[in-house]
Write a protein that binds this DNA or RNA. Structure first.
Length: 242
DNA sequence: AAACTGTCCAACCGCTATATA
DNA sequence: ATATATAGCGGTTGGACAGTT
């Protein structure tokens, strides 16, 4: 069976939206509501497919959209939800008012992932002793971040977190007991709860132990400076929608 | 100033889920 | 029960822009 791409129809416009198109779509929806996306472009006088209109509305034109950068709190919440839900962006987005799945997905892929990775490599590098690089280097998909104090899988996190993970990844670790036995002083309750989420999710998928990890392999110096994300937090929410 | 490189994000693609005839 | 259309989702891409050489 299979469906043809909706925009293959001759004459339909693709690519970036013009201001006029935005106005047409916005006016139409605000005046008439949404009943069927297929007929929206027709009635609104747009040479776009319904799918494209829907996306434009959801991701850009919706009046309740919150524009601007993510706050620290939002970012932490994304990380927390991602640890529970994996790449189910629409589910994650449903926990935020005014944020789209696309926006959160983009933010995760471009900012948070890198941030995790960066912090992970800093922690990793600081623990490696000369001459022991190969043996001591933890798998770089194990990262502890300061902001969340959760175990994050940064390099192949998507695969690991995916519902049907088939790739052998890492061993489950009881971080609480590890901290006790290793004498670390991390006492964040959010850390253990978030970590538990990872474990329960991992257990529900075909999560296979591959190698052991130890806190010896990490430098858990939680004083590492972070990018000041809150610099972006107070951009004018109403910048777009006046 | 020009060329190159990296980053960001809007938009698209292809798929699944759901509704309906 | 089946076929088909639409809605919705997540992954990916491409172009604009910024920074660097």
């Amino acid at each position: 069976m299979g469906r043809k791409p909706c925009c293959e129809k001759i004459g339909l416009k693709r690519g970036p939206w013009t201001i006029e198109e935005d106005h047409r779509l916005m006016n139409f929806i605000l005046n008439n509501g949404i009943h069927c996306w297929r007929i929206v472009p027709k009635l609104a006088g747009l040479l776009r497919c319904g799918k494209s209109c829907r996306l434009r509305w959801i991701n850009y034109l919706r009046p309740d959209l919150k524009r601007g950068g993510f706050t620290d709190a939002e970012e932490d919440r994304i990380i927390e939800l991602h640890s529970q839900l994996g790449n189910r962006w629409s589910k994650i987005a449903s926990h935020f008012s005014g944020r789209t799945d696309n926006e959160i997905k983009n933010h995760w892929n471009t900012k948070i992932k890198k941030k995790m990775k960066h912090l992970g490599s800093m922690n990793t590098c600081s623990t490696i002793k000369e001459g022991e690089v190969k043996d001591q280097t933890p798998k770089d998909d194990h990262v502890i971040t300061e902001t969340t104090k959760t175990l994050i899988i940064s390099d192949n996190d998507d695969e690991l977190m995916a519902k049907n993970c088939k790739t052998p990844c890492a061993e489950e670790v009881d971080m609480d007991s590890l901290f006790e036995t290793q004498g670390n002083e991390i006492s964040s309750s959010s850390f253990s709860s978030l970590y538990s989420n990872y474990i329960s999710r991992s257990e529900s998928s075909s999560y296979i132990a591959e190698d052991s990890i130890s806190l010896d392999q990490w430098d858990l110096d939680m004083t590492d400076p972070l990018v000041p994300w809150d610099l972006f937090a107070n951009l004018d929410d109403n910048l777009f929608f006046l």
